[in-house]
Design a protein around this nucleic acid. Sequence first.
DNA 1: TGTATCATGTAAGATGTTACATGATTGC
DNA 2: GCAATCATGTAACATCTTACATGATACA
Lengths: 193, 193
Amino acid sequence: MSLQHALLGVLEARPMNGYELTRFFEAAPRWVWSAPQSQIYPTLRQMEQAGLIEGQKEIRGTRLSRTVYSITERGLAELRTWLGTSHTPPPARDAFFLQALFFDMIEPDRAASVLKAFIAEQEQLAAEWRAHREALLAKDTPLLKERLKNRPAGEHDRIAALKAHVFAGQIAVATARAEWARESLRLLEEPTP
Amino acid sequence: MSLQHALLGVLEARPMNGYELTRFFEAAPRWVWSAPQSQIYPTLRQMEQAGLIEGQKEIRGTRLSRTVYSITERGLAELRTWLGTSHTPPPARDAFFLQALFFDMIEPDRAASVLKAFIAEQEQLAAEWRAHREALLAKDTPLLKERLKNRPAGEHDRIAALKAHVFAGQIAVATARAEWARESLRLLEEPTP
DNA sequence: TGTATCATGTAAGATGTTACATGATTGC
DNA sequence: GCAATCATGTAACATCTTACATGATACA
């Protein structure tokens, strides 16, 4: 159900059509949730049926139609309830740690090259998140700007700080993973006595 | 495909039947991968068809039959290839960070209680992993004992250290998450000027 | 007139979840 | 005899992935 809540969270900022949402959820600088286009459209229709969002059909030109969805009172209530509830953690399922668990079965060189790629990838992610965090602190992302329009000015700093802090969390995790991988490299290279 | 590799990794230690594997993958002290019983059995049959594992039917008592699966040469090769290859990271999909991203929409008290539950849960996980890590370092887990029987004694320390280090990684991530949640609590409580 | 972008759709298959179902064996 | 454990199965459903398909509009 998380995709639905992710969509509700985005639509709370402003109404959007499937195409915009698709670009958002497929965006290169990774966000906290991702989904392919083929999942977005059916989910939107489902959510409309459930009364969580409302679609407004528009025509561009003569024949190109798009449906702009906005969050309903019901959707807002559902989102708030979900946000205020503790959910059971997802089952452990980390393909990379799984891989690392059996590194003793392959040559250290091969394991090392996998680890190095992992470090590069985590650092890349951290860099993207760092940029996004900065942009949020500067209140300079398209979505945050829209969102703040419906909020009292006195809260803007707090809201930006809270959102930015989520990406600080992503950065912290990516950094911890990269650091762990560097330690792994040292462990692998240790000469066996 | 990761479940298949997880199963291969476990079966490399020793042959097991579906029931044993189920207990392993549903075990309370979380491992790096989990799967329900309903997924294990069909996957095992699939893997046997693919020649990655080999099932040996046994009879306990008069009628209770079980199929003990062991890894084949083919399965071992597949596992080694997978272990030595870098895989594209899974798409970002973190329900908790998603939730935290919208904490500005609910009362700070409610957000705080969600955060506190999260901290407790991450610390619980870290504790379980810490215990498992210690057990691995002491070469005192059932599976590791089996596994080491087929390895030269001179490598035992290194293998145990490598496996234990994976759980050090899990602990580091859980700790980073808990620490991040504690910072969030402070941010939430900050008085708005 | 052609290319990039806008805009929406579906279909097949893999993976994961929840729940139910059946019977054998061990040990008290 | 009864409960806990051993042992395997399936069915329905939700979720996610990969791929294909179609047409409109903007703009150079």
